[in-house]
Design a protein around this nucleic acid. Sequence first.
DNA 1: CAGAATCCATTAAGATACTG
DNA 2: CAGTATCTTAATGGATTCTG
Lengths: 121, 121
Amino acid sequence: MNAHPMMLKDRSAQPTDAEYALIRKALEIISGKWRLYLILLLGEHTLRYSELRQRLPAVSEKVLAGELKALVLLGVIRRDVFAEMPLRVEYTLTQKGRLALPILQQMPQIGRIFNECFDAT
Amino acid sequence: MNAHPMMLKDRSAQPTDAEYALIRKALEIISGKWRLYLILLLGEHTLRYSELRQRLPAVSEKVLAGELKALVLLGVIRRDVFAEMPLRVEYTLTQKGRLALPILQQMPQIGRIFNECFDAT
DNA sequence: CAGAATCCATTAAGATACTG
DNA sequence: CAGTATCTTAATGGATTCTG
């Protein structure tokens, strides 16, 4: 809309903190409504596109395809195309993805802690 | 506390999966640009509002105050007001927050994994 | 000091229809 | 089968000003 090149501020570099940069990267991996769920699903076994769609009934084509593409770009998952008929495309965790998996598998435990009802001091 | 799957009816509850619900709750705790960072900061020591602001130079009043309020509501942190002059308000991790901390402290490691440059198979 | 209120910009998410 | 393309809406982020 209003293009004012002079107004560009580097807002993303504020904390100038290595620790913060790592946190941002980690959040980029798991944030969004489906990324972490996709990673955990693919942590169990390789799945093809249609299988993923069945396991995430609420997600639209655009969002699922977009999230998968983002995860490929981030190096979390790998996309393998098999030139068969009909076409088969499979998604698998990369080495990095498998390395991160043990930590990410603890995330549901976080949810469990905050669903519990005990003294909140 | 567990909802009956049949009662889940709106679009936000589609997977009807207990595991997915835990993931959503976990993401609610740490998502957003500052929540995880705030939790990790407060994991080191109690801080007052102005101290938090200094450690997050890029964040606006509205966002910081809003995120702190959300974290209090979620039961992650506690807000203590001291009727001094000038006013003092301190934020501290709750018991749940301290319980979740060891897992959340691993998150920067996720960032580290995906910043590394090694074979992405 | 520690925020609340207001207004605007940016981004994410979703429905639907269509394609190699 | 495995996605794109397009459009629309919802959510989030941020600057600025004001207050007990």
